[in-house]
Each structure stands twice: as C-alpha cells, then as structure tokens.
Design a protein around this nucleic acid. Structure first.
Length: 573
RNA sequence: GCCUCAGUAGCUCAGUCGGUUAGAGCGGCGGACUGUUAAUCCGUAGGUCCAAGGUUCAAGUCCUUGCUGAGGCGCCA
C-alpha cells in the first residue's frame, strides 16, 4: 500500500491523515497522522478518485474514532451556535501553557489556562501553576461575578480552567494577570482531607506523599531540571558523535564487579528446583541460568566502543546494597560514555567538559528553577548556625564550578597532601592516611572543600582496591606500588560523582588480573575476546545521574531528586 | 551492615525531677475583607502521646523488644 498525505478537500475542512488505497476494492482508507506511530483508523472513504473529508471526519468523530491528537477541522472546533456551554473538550484545544503566556504575553487577548491552585488570596487572587514553569500566573476573580459555591471550591491544589482577558497587572508582584470571565473546576481538592498544605513541609513528609509532591514549587523545579539534564546528556553526546547504546537491564553475568545484585527469576520461591547435589537448579529458570538486574552497562559499552568508536549508555542501574545514606539509591540512573582510542587524560577532559556542559545547560535553560531553589536554600539556612551553612549559594556554587578548572592530582599526591594537612597532624581524621589504603569520605571532603575548594579529579589509584578491568600503569619513580589508570571526580557536598578508568586492553595483563581477583574466566569469555580480536586502547566512566541532579539542584538528599526513590525497606509508589 | 538521634493535633514542634484537665504556631472549618504576594483580622474544632510488654500508688516522661524515619560511617555513582 502506498502512503500519501491527504490534501484538504475543501477550505472549510482541514483534514489531515494518511490515505491507503486498497487496489482490489478500490476503497480508500484514512488513517490519522498525528504522529509517525499512530495508525488509528479514521474511516473508509468512498470508491473513486476523490475523498470526502466531511463525510469521514463527521462519521469518525461521532464514533469517537479520531485520535485525541488528531487536528480537528475548524468546522468541529467551532463553538456550538445554539448557546450551549462550551465543553472542556473544546477548551483544551485553546489552552495555553503558562510558560508560553509569560514568555510572550499578548495583552488584551482572551486566553484559557488550566492548572493547579497554589494560593487563593483575599477571595480574589488565584496563583495558578500548570507545571510548565516555576512561575505562577495570577488570576483575578471578581467575586461578585462568580457563585459562592464555585469560589469555595477554589482551594489549595484544586485543578481549574480559567478563561479571561490577559492584562497588565495592577499589583506589583507580577507583570501580567488574567481577568477571569469563566472559571471551571476540573478537579476538586478537599482541604480537609488533602494531605498537603500551603506552608513549608519537610522533605521527609513530602517523600511519603510522592504522588502529590511534584505539585510543590520545590519538586516541580527539581523534576524540570532533572528533565533538562537528561535531555542535555543526549544532546551533549549526540553533538559530539557518540552513539546511544542500550545496555541490557537484565544480565546473566555476575562478574561486573560493582556490588550486590538483585536476582531476576520466575522460579517459584516457595518450591525451588534442586539439582541432585541439592543446589538450586538455575537451568530451570527463565533464562536457563542465574540472572540479575544490571549494576553497570560498562562491559557492554566497551563492546560498542570497539565497533562504533564512541558510545554512551544512559539507563537504570540497580544495587542491592544496604546503603542508608543521602547519596545512595537501590535504583538509580547512570551515564556511561566509552571511547575507543582514548586514554585516562582524554577521559578526564571529557568528564570535566561534560559536567560543565550540564551545569551550563541548566543555567541557560532553567534559570527560574535554579533561582527558586537557591532562594529556598537561603531561606532554609537562615535558621542554621553560621558554621553549618553552605559556603556559597546554589547559583554561585554552580558558576564557581563553571569558572574554574577541576584540580587534577594523582592518588600519590593526594596522600602526600593529606599527610601534610592540619587535621592529619592534629589526629582529626578517623581513618588512617597511608599509601595503599583507599581514600575515605573525610579525606575526599578535605581535598575538595578545604584544600582546593573546587571539584577534584584523583587518578592512578593503587591496583589493590580497584576493579579488574582498569589499566595497569607502568611503574613510576616515587610511587611505592602498582597503580591503575583509574579516576574519580569529587564534588563538594556529594563526593564522588564520576568513577572511571582507562581499560586494560592487553589480553595477558587482563587475564592475569582476572585470575588474581578470583573471578571465573568463563564468565567473561566475550570480554576477553574483545582484547584478543581487534582490541584498542579505550576508556570511559560512569556518572551517577541523580548525584549530578543533586549537585545542580542543591537538594541534600538523593531521594528528593528522583520521582520514586527505591531504597532499603522502601519501594512505595 | 555498624553507630547516634527522633516518633506527641492534619503539618512543624514544646512538654522541666515520673505527679492535677497534654500546649503553641501554621493548616482546617465558620465569619469579615475588591489589589493580595507564605495576605490579614475575629471565632472555633481537633489527641489510640509509633507498637507490644515491663517497672511504679502514678508513665507522653523510666526500662526491654520491635517498627518507621533522619543523620554519621562503610559499600559506591
């Protein structure tokens, strides 16, 4: 069948759709064209060359066959002439988003807006928010013009539709407002039983009301910014020639070396199949083997990089660790770029440029949201003693990161700096500082927040506490032991945002590392073969998406930057 | 997983050495208010003091266990 766009058959009826001709019957069939995926059937046309839009459209409309996105002809959207009240259905097509009104206000025109009531002051002024922007639009409701019954229903977070003239505001807090001529309650919100209130509420409380918290100013700002960062990530890599590679969410490998995993099974847990030896028989399971949720897409990303050159993954990641901190989630999103023909230095360059790009993108595109979060933090910190307050405001902090180069040091440098530090000499560190021991949070925090006062990239860690796939460095004078080309990007407040490395591309070296760490070689046969056949030097890193959102929004708990957080003992919503 | 703290009205919290009828602010409800910006003013209702057990003449308060939450640490992104 040939797909062909249908032209309007008459000026009055603008019909949009794709027409398929059936050769055998000669009938024409019309399908919706609201989007490339929509195949909603709108009706059969009559035989013959011409297609009657009116007939089909009217018939389809009566039978509710038209896709909701389908552009209705002017004929249908015209208001009924018999004076019947216009329906919401028609209003919705006229609805303008508040962001559009505020960006480009057409004064003295009639507009229709829909959204949720943030405040109803003086029985006259409604602050309306529809989620399209941080800013509310003020609705002026002349209370003699509206029934008391209606006004009573304009309560906190009730959903309403308002039509009226857009005018310059007489008040001082806003530039424009709507003089309401028509108000409709789309969804009542009984304040006696609705859990949220027009007042400050704690993050803990709002977390327990995850189905309503996006309506608050703080969370809507966070989720708009979260979206912007996600979008910017794709844009960043796409613009630089990376390919988005979908790494699997279910994995059969448990040798990824990144923590405890969630098991995926269809076996009856009440009655597990056993082998003769009495062990659980995973051959009976859905995949014919033991399977888990992924803890990293890195190993698969390496497959991509060694064919497509530059790839990135961006997907959910699962860690079944009992981590009870404001920086950990059991389900989080991770971005893992992987580049062939790249070493640890190129890796660091990408990491720094990438972080800065995301921050800049948010400042350029979500300034109102950042400003609102900044103001909120400042307000919140007023009640804290001076030494507990953040050294910088949110926006100031973001600009500071943009304006300064990240400090780049080796692990060996870091140990030396720490051993010469005041807290070390005064014995204020809880954990020992010596070459060969991993840096603890208190050490990282000292480097980032006290010594350098900006993001720090630490590289070349001892191989003993790093993963098997990291590239072994040549021995260096002044370095007491073997190191690998690993790097961590440390940010103020949240610690490690990025962990990455140059990968071990030498088959023999990798194989002996796998053996040393007690990993079964058979699990990683394909990973080893990547080195055996057409291998290349390559590098990459993992960036914790929520940690970046946390840094950019200034939220102190990671559970408040993901819509539905999953943490130990918590998977509501 | 370890350590610390918390759980009292719808929300945020106070409640002294174990002692009479458990309080406040905000929010809700009723009323007033035609230029408000967390509006304001007057009035009013609202409690299984997390749960179970224990000590005591007497427990919101002390003890034990459990549950939940937060913070710190570890693991990491």
């Amino acid at each position: 069948m040939k797909r062909r766009r249908v032209r309007p058959t008459s000026p009055a009826i603008r019909l949009r759709g794709y027409r398929y001709g059936d050769r055998r019957s000669g009938r024409k069939m019309l399908f919706c064209s609201c989007c490339s995926g929509c195949m909603r059937w709108l009706g059969n046309g009559p035989k013959g060359k011409y297609f009657s839009g009116r007939e089909v459209t009217n018939k389809s409309h009566r039978r509710s066959k038209i896709c909701s996105n389908y552009v209705i002809s002017p004929l249908l959207s015209k208001r009924p002439s018999d004076g019947r009240r216009q329906t919401i259905q028609n209003d919705m097509k006229k609805r303008i988003e508040i962001s559009a009104i505020l960006a480009n206000p057409q004064l003295d025109t009639e507009v229709t807006v829909m959204g949720w009531v943030r405040a109803f002051r003086n029985n006259r002024f409604i602050a309306l928010n529809d989620g399209s922007t941080q800013n509310n639009l003020q609705i002026v409701a002349d209370n003699e013009q509206f029934a008391e019954e209606l006004l009573r229903k304009i309560s906190f977070h009730a959903c309403i539709a308002v039509t009226g003239q857009l005018t310059a505001s007489l008040g001082s807090g806003q530039a424009v407002e709507i003089q309401a001529s028509h108000i409709e309650i789309l969804g009542e919100c009984n304040p006696e039983s609705y859990p949220l209130q027009p007042k400050r509420q704690t993050m803990e409380f709002l977390r327990s009301k995850a189905h309503f918290r996006p309506r608050t100013s703080t969370f809507s700002a966070v989720f708009r910014i979260r979206h912007a960062i996600a979008f910017a990530i794709h844009k960043y890599y796409n613009d630089r020639g990376f390919y988005y590679l979908h790494s699997p969410i279910i994995t059969g490998s448990d040798a990824e070396g990144a923590g405890e995993m969630f098991r995926v099974t269809t076996l009856d847990v009440e009655n597990l199949p056993r082998t003769e030896a009495g062990e659980i028989d995973w051959k009976e399971d859905f995949f014919g083997r033991s399977a888990n949720l992924t803890v990293s897409g890195q190993l698969q990303a390496e497959i991509g990089a060694l064919a497509l050159g530059k790839v990135y993954t961006f997907g959910p990641t699962f860690r079944a660790e009992n981590s009870n901190t404001p920086r950990h989630l059991a389900e989080f999103w991770m971005i893992e770029p992987e580049m062939a023909f790249c070493d640890i230095y190129g890796n660091m360059d990408l990491a720094e440029d990438f972080c800065k790009y995301l921050i800049r993108y948010v400042l350029d595109n979500c300034y109102d949201d950042v400003a609102a979060l900044d103001a909120r933090l400042k307000e919140e910190e007023k009640s804290l003693p001076a030494d507990k307050r953040r050294p910088m405001g949110l926006e100031e902090q973001l600009r500071f990161v943009l304006d300064n180069d990240f400090e780049r040091i080796t692990y060996t440098d870091a140990i030396r700096i720490l051993q010469n530090s005041k807290p070390y000499k005064k014995g204020q560190f809880e954990f020992p500082v010596e070459w060969g021991k991993d840096l603890q949070a208190e050490h990282e925090r000292f480097l980032v927040e006290k010594e350098f006062k900006k993001p720090v990239i630490v590289r070349n860690y001892p191989k003993v506490f790093k993963a098997f796939y990291m590239r072994l460095n040549d021995p260096e004078p002044g370095v007491p032991g073997d190191t690998v080309a690993a790097m961590d990007v440390l940010f103020p407040g949240i610690g490690e945002v990025i962990g990455g490395s140059q990968r071990e591309e030498r088959y023999d070296v990798l194989r002996s590392r796998i053996h040393d760490m007690g990993i079964h070689e058979e699990e990683l046969w394909w990973y080893l073969e990547l080195r055996k056949f057409g291998g290349a030097p390559h590098a990459g890193f993992g960036l914790g998406f929520e940690r970046m959102v946390q840094f950019i929004t200034g939220m102190s708990n990671i559970r408040d930057v993901i819509p539905f957080p999953r943490t130990p003992k918590s998977a509501e919503f």
